[in-house]
């Protein structure tokens, strides 16, 4: 529907003898900017905005493929079901706990690895390669490999323990040990990513600062806390944001190592979403769970961004 102003616009253009589209041939900077952003914006709408809106809409519906009835509007029913669902609370708690343990864990290990890789070795590639390998390995492969490592009878962990005279545990038979095994695996898998980002940060720190510190008589430890750490802060925050968000979405490693067992004691929220949608085909409830996880990730990102802005 053409509004009055548009009609006038077209008319004026026609009067001056030019067509409305001619301005795209010689665009102003602003028009050019909009035009160039268009493809990306359209693509993002298609693959991110639309699915997210659709997800939120589905979360307000009673939509279960096993019920044999068409979807009906359910209001907040899925969300109130969630509050009474003990497995939702357990999996959410497990997710938070995994995040709280593995993010700082990976940061510490990653920092140590980065510092080691930054030492002035003559041959740098073996160190860098060994840093890259855990990062390049797909998550589910890492999960399957470590599931064998921790297997109570055939695993290498218990075998080594036995050789040094310690009776190993049946890792996946106990909620705590299974949880510990999963956290160790995640830290192993993700600390190299942390190390890579921190290593990049380390290399931007000018040598001259350390030389000046040497002249002033500052020791190694003092140099680390007064120069290295403060200048690394931006790199560390970036690494933390990425790591925290992926930690909240932890799926592959517990899924391949324990399938959430024993019982549901090592299941994460992402696994519970997968179970409700793919196994139980309850798309309404699964979507509501996914909305909660989405909100959780958004909330954490907002906190980090605020931290950066406050410091920046």
């Amino acid at each position: 529907m053409a509004t009055a102003s548009e009609t006038t616009l077209v008319t004026t253009h026609n009067e001056s003898g030019t067509k409305w589209w001619t301005r795209f041939l010689d665009p102003s900077e602003r028009t050019l900017g909009v035009l160039l952003l268009m493809p990306a914006a359209l693509l993002l709408t298609l693959i991110i905005v639309y699915p997210v809106c659709r997800l939120i809409w589905t979360s307000f519906q009673n939509l279960s493929l096993t019920s044999g009835v068409p979807a009906t509007f359910a209001g907040l029913e899925n969300y109130s079901l969630m509050l009474e669902d003990p497995v939702f609370w357990e999996t959410t708690w497990n997710t938070v706990l995994i995040t709280l343990i593995t993010v700082p864990g990976a940061l510490l290990v990653g920092l140590a690895l980065a510092l080691m890789a930054n030492l002035p070795f003559n041959v740098k590639w073996p160190v860098r390669l060994s840093l890259l390998i855990p990062w390049a390995l797909p998550l589910s492969f890492a999960g399957l490999i470590f599931a064998w490592f921790f297997h109570s009878e055939y695993g290498v962990v218990n075998d080594v323990l036995r050789r040094i005279g310690i009776e190993g545990v049946i890792w996946f038979n106990s909620a705590n040990w299974a949880f510990a095994a999963i956290c160790l695996t995640i830290i192993w898998k993700t600390s190299s990513f942390m190390a890579l980002i921190i290593l990049a940060g380390l290399q931007t720190i000018p040598r001259s600062l350390y030389e000046a510190a040497d002249v002033d008589g500052a020791g190694r430890l003092r140099q680390f806390f007064e120069i290295t750490l403060p200048l690394l802060k931006p790199a560390i925050v970036v690494a933390l944001i990425f790591r925290t968000i992926t930690a909240l979405q932890t799926f592959d490693i517990p899924f391949t190592m324990t399938r959430g067992g024993p019982g549901t004691s090592t299941a994460t929220l992402a696994m519970y979403i997968h179970q409700n949608t793919v196994d139980f085909l309850d798309l309404g409830y699964g979507s509501a769970l996914a909305v909660v996880m989405f909100a959780l990730s958004m909330g954490v990102t907002a906190v980090y961004l605020r931290m950066i802005r406050a410091k920046g």
Partner: peptide, 23 residues
């Protein structure tokens, strides 16, 4: 039952939890 997958999940995780000494 069309909701068999849920029934199954409830039973098998419980059996697993009991045999592991979790409950």
């Amino acid at each position: 039952t069309p909701r068999y997958n849920e029934v199954s999940e409830i039973i098998r995780t419980t059996v697993n939890g009991v045999l592991a000494g979790q409950s």
